[in-house]
Write a protein that binds this DNA or RNA. Structure first.
Length: 514
RNA sequence: GGCUGGGUAGCUCAGCUGGUUAGAGCACGGCACUCAUAAUGCCGGGGUCGGCGGUUCAAGUCCGCCCCCAGCUACCA
């Protein structure tokens, strides 16, 4: 386990949009995993980036009077800005407009052609000249005048066929089912796995993988009128990063990816199309794809038209990055949809962070500071209560590791906070302030047990709240090198000088004026 | 319509292969304590476990029917 590679990816975000809570959520989950695995000694590669091709971008750029590349240079910046705001730690930020990505896409294409999985056919659909786009049957309706129109735009549509290359996806259904069977962890959570299985069991159609209706994208080798359609372009970024087609590239060691984190809307691309492409090209599919849910805002579906889009930058400004990170991963079972409520966020901030965790640190560290000469107190003989608490804290790393292996962030945090609650109970039961008068030796041991418990609890919280936990570990004088999990069993050494304690998780008080 | 997953305390949810008085967190009420960020701890109220019927010594936990909710049922990133 230690030293082994861990490659985790976010989807590449389409730059047609500005970053919202959904983007932040996906990347946050990846960031926590990446940070955890690094602390756990893994050789981590964490990739995020932007998808910058396609007709929408081409048109948006034209509308802005800009060249497509200049346009995407500009709008992809907001996604790069989010990295700092949310404290993400990617190893690279990939863009589909990079030259190496063109090379990778074209190499993959040629591999698929050589394998006989791509053929030239015709893509047919209901085309709206006005919208310059195709609609599927279900997106259109026939009016009273007998004419068929796009339901969403009201524009008249006509049946059009254009030449297009197809990928023989229909031939891959059985092999995909066999792959799912042999790799039960390939799709998470289980509910999504069921959906994908039933979808593939229902049979697959060949997939149109090129378009001639726009030019902003990767040209098809040997037939540059054709531009690769979204699937082949976007998904390929994951292997572009590793150097494909150069499997001697040092980064190739990270493939196959350990985890593609995605929103539930793009699970099919990742769980059906992508492994089929890869298997057809003789490349190993990723080990796992996990689809998380969506957020609603105070019970309402989020949409631009409703004007209730949640801006992660605003959240961080108001509540702080650690609280936002904690809330998003603690409030909702990861994989489920969740409802974003201010009062729930404030409840978590004040209840879980300020009252339970922050106050535990503060009450313990301030007694230590006042009674133990601003040093780690001496550790005497341990009672049953002492070892019971310490043992629970010692067990956390194994528990959190297992939960994160399943992307069960909420369970990992719940387990940690149970120990925090135990520690608060222990403080009350041991009453070190009373021992100060009767048995200062025992008091010191109690305080040592508490400080050591805080240290053990805090190490696995680091990936979730890197800033606050860093400050707590500073107050315990834990050396940076001992904050990785190799330091988990390095107990606090009595006599180590400690800095003056300071609150780390302030209570959130609603501003007076709204 | 079909498929899948759900309907358990005010809210969010745990309850594995059926077995003592159905649990947790939050919210609410009372008490204790005072080291601490008016924090913490203890106690308590509150549930026809969607409905009806069945199997069983025993069902939230199995079977049948019904009601309700969510997701999926492909070319939009």
């Amino acid at each position: 386990m230690s030293g082994s590679t861990y490659y985790v990816t976010t989807p590449i975000y389409y730059v047609n949009d500005v970053p919202h809570i959904g983007h932040a959520y996906t990347s946050l989950a990846c960031d926590v995993l990446a940070r955890f695995m690094r602390l756990d000694g893994r050789d981590v590669h964490f990739l995020t980036g932007t998808d910058e091709h396609g007709q929408k971008i081409e048109k948006a750029a034209a509308a802005a009077g800009m060249a497509p590349q200049a346009f995407t240079d500009k709008v992809s910046q907001s996604f790069r800005d989010l990295l700092g705001v949310m404290d993400y730690s990617p190893d690279n930020f990939i863009r589909t407009t990079e030259k190496r990505h063109y090379a990778a896409c074209q190499a993959l294409w040629e591999k698929l052609v050589a394998a006989g999985d791509i053929y030239l056919g015709a893509y047919a659909g209901w085309y709206s000249v006005r919208d310059e786009t195709y609609f599927v049957e279900g997106e259109t309706e026939v009016g009273q005048d007998g004419k068929r129109r796009a339901t969403s735009t009201g524009a008249e549509v006509e049946w059009v066929e254009e030449p297009s290359y197809f990928f023989k996806l229909s031939a891959w259904a059985d092999r995909l089912l066999e792959f799912y069977e042999k790799n039960p962890r390939f799709i998470g959570p289980d509910s999504r796995r069921n959906e994908i299985l039933s979808f593939v069991r229902g049979g697959l159609q060949d997939l149109s993988v090129s378009r001639t209706s726009f030019s902003w994208g990767v040209p098809v080798p040997g037939d540059p009128k054709h531009i690769m359609y979204v699937w082949l372009d976007a998904l390929t970024n994951y292997i572009t990063e590793c150097g494909y087609p150069d499997t001697n590239n040092p980064l190739w060691k990270y493939w196959p990816a350990d985890l593609h984190m995605v929103g539930k809307d793009i699970i099919r691309f990742h769980c059906v199309f992508w492994p089929a492409f890869l298997m057809a090209a003789g490349i190993a599919p990723p080990k796992r794809v996990f689809a998380h849910g969506w957020w609603t805002n105070e019970g309402q579906k989020i949409s631009k038209s409703l004007g209730n889009v949640i801006d992660p930058v605003d959240l961080v400004k108001t509540y702080g990055v650690d609280a936002v990170r904690y809330f998003l991963l603690r409030e909702v079972p990861f994989g489920n949809d969740g409802d974003f409520q201010k009062k729930a966020l404030v409840g978590r901030m004040n209840g879980d962070l300020a009252n339970a965790y922050g106050n535990l640190c503060q009450r313990v560290l301030s007694i230590v500071a006042k009674n133990c000469g601003e040093k780690v107190p001496p550790k005497g003989a341990l009672t049953e209560a002492d070892t019971a608490l310490l043992d629970r804290a010692k067990g956390l790393l194994t528990i959190v590791r297992a939960e994160l292996d399943d992307q069960a962030f909420h369970k990992a945090l719940t387990s940690i906070w149970e120990v925090i609650a135990d520690a608060n109970r222990y403080v009350d039961a041991q009453a070190p302030w009373a021992l100060a008068k009767t048995d200062p030796v025992r008091r010191d041991t109690v305080l040592w047990v508490l400080a050591e418990t805080i240290r053990r609890v805090t190490l696995p919280v680091q990936p979730f709240m890197p800033d606050a936990t860093g400050r707590i570990l500073d107050q315990l004088a834990v050396a940076p090198a001992d904050r990785a999990f190799t330091g988990f069993d390095k107990e606090l050494v009595p006599g180590t000088p400690l800095p003056k304690p300071q609150g780390v998780f302030p209570r959130y008080v609603e501003p007076k004026a709204e």
